[in-house]
Design a protein around this nucleic acid. Structure first.
Lengths: 109, 109
DNA sequence: ATCATAAGACACCATTAGGTGTCTCGTCAA
DNA sequence: TTGACGAGACACCTAATGGTGTCTTATGAT
């Protein structure tokens, strides 16, 4: 089991647009050092580092030191929680299905 | 088009656990007045009302006045954005597929 | 007509979030 | 061996967040 007590809510982690961009960047790059990530944003290294810490706390990112740089890697698995959560509500936005599906839901109980 | 300029980021709206519980309650109840929703929480009416405003700003909730009460209803459609977003990353958590799918992704370009 | 209830509108408060800058310390290159 | 670079660790600031309580108004019940 790789999912050890996430100190930080994954919903919270993805709430910030900067962090979502970080996730995207890491998805495309597989592994990136902090300074390289920082170059993509209009904010200081400290700020980016903090965002990465938050992602790490949520288990969405892993880091390892290589020489003097710290390289980050995406670990998307915790996003599954989001997917499961949102999947539950998907039945509510099938426009004409919304009322029907709810009725069916009630029947099942 | 029912999706008119969401003043509030939907990622932000679902970040708070209280708001997620509100969404859940509304999903089950179809329509609920503020006071009844408030009864489910250990916080004041004002606080719950604020959370509902935020959900409304994100387009996740609709309200109508009936007599002296304000009834709320879930409008799940904006959650589709979350689903689309997270679906993009689902290829990264298929354990043994994660590296492979990334390689395939690169091939396509 | 009176009184209780539902909720909007504020003013207020403490904590967190998201930035900044600076100092220090390893590590790599000359 | 002396810099320059990458990054951790702080201290710090401001604005936003998530609560509170109170006052007022509209509605419904007696």
């Amino acid at each position: 089991m790789s999912e050890n007590s996430p100190l930080r809510d994954v919903y919270d982690a993805i709430a910030d647009p900067t962090r979502r961009r970080l996730i995207r960047l890491l998805a495309e790059a597989d592994e990136m050092p902090l300074h390289e990530l920082t170059a993509q944003f209009e904010m200081g290294r400290t700020a980016v580092s903090k965002h990465l810490s938050i992602l790490k706390e949520a288990g969405l990112v892993r880091d390892r030191k290589v020489g003097r740089e710290t390289r980050f890697r995406l670990h998307a698995a915790p996003l599954r929680e989001i997917q499961d959560w949102v999947a539950f509500y998907s039945k509510f936005w099938s426009a004409n299905m919304s009322r029907l599906s709810r009725l069916l839901e009630e029947e099942e109980e």
